[in-house]
Amino acid sequence: MQHGKYRFIAGFLAAPLALYALFVVWPFVQSIYYSFTDWTGLSPDFSLVGLDNYARLWDDDVFWASLRHSLLFALLLPVLTIGLALFFAFMINVGGRPRRGAAVSGVRGSSFYKIAYFFPQVLSIAIVALLFQFAYNPESGAINSGLRAVGLGGVQPLWLGDPDLALWCVMAVLVWSTVGFFVVLFSAGMASIPRDFYEAALLDGAGRITTFFRITLPLLRDTIQSGWVYMGILALGAESFAVVQIMTTGPGGPDYSTTVLVLYVYQSAFRDGAAAYATTIGVALLVVTLAFAAAVMRLGRRERLEY
């Protein structure tokens, strides 16, 4: 009956594996194959062209600019977002001054902040991008109007129209719209850290900064790591595409200052009728994403703490 056991287990595994192969593995294989063709995406006929697309990629300044920006997103966005989210979550949950009745508590009004921070999460990224586009309007937008109102009429940046600022404007929107999610995620993580640890630390005379680095951070490590991967995917993928596509000059500009890999894939496939070249850029993006995931996993490898 050993044979029957295999069949039993295989029966369970076959369906999910087949689905995975069909919807995940196979598209990957296909797009890698298309990157060696001259498929336009507008007609079923194409021929194999060898490494032409990759040679073109190598000499394509816009590709390198996109890669640079995507890498910048993947490195900076997680640091900024998770750093801010950790700070907020700590202040909301354990960062308050000791009060009567509870040795460990959040700052005053912490329950309000928790909701306020999460609020952007209920807005779709497209709406967020549109709203910020209005705010960044140099002529009548909220930011420049605000600057004028406080007597800074001389400081009227072009924001999205300035190649030195545009990328940072876009990044700020992504941080704003995602930080709330991580505040909630980390709050939940912190809630599961036993209060005794904090109380013990406080009894030993540890300040807020020390408790954060010695207790909160090490015990949240797993949560932060998964947050990091999630944020990296978001920075390389759909979210960064949406804001760049909706908000920026061109889109992708001014002067290629905000173009990212996903946007370039989209433009090649759906504007230029160069689907094969788009899949080539997609392969490059795949490499970047895998490298990012591998790096995070390697850096984060450690024995699990049980508590």
Binding site: Q133, Y136, N137, P138, E139, S140, N144, Q156, L158, W159, L160, G161, D162, T249, P254
Partner: peptide, 11 residues
């Protein structure tokens, strides 16, 4: 018009 490089078509 000042700020024009940051305006989209509708703005």
């Amino acid at each position: 018009l000042k700020g024009t490089p940051g305006l989209d078509h509708i703005q």
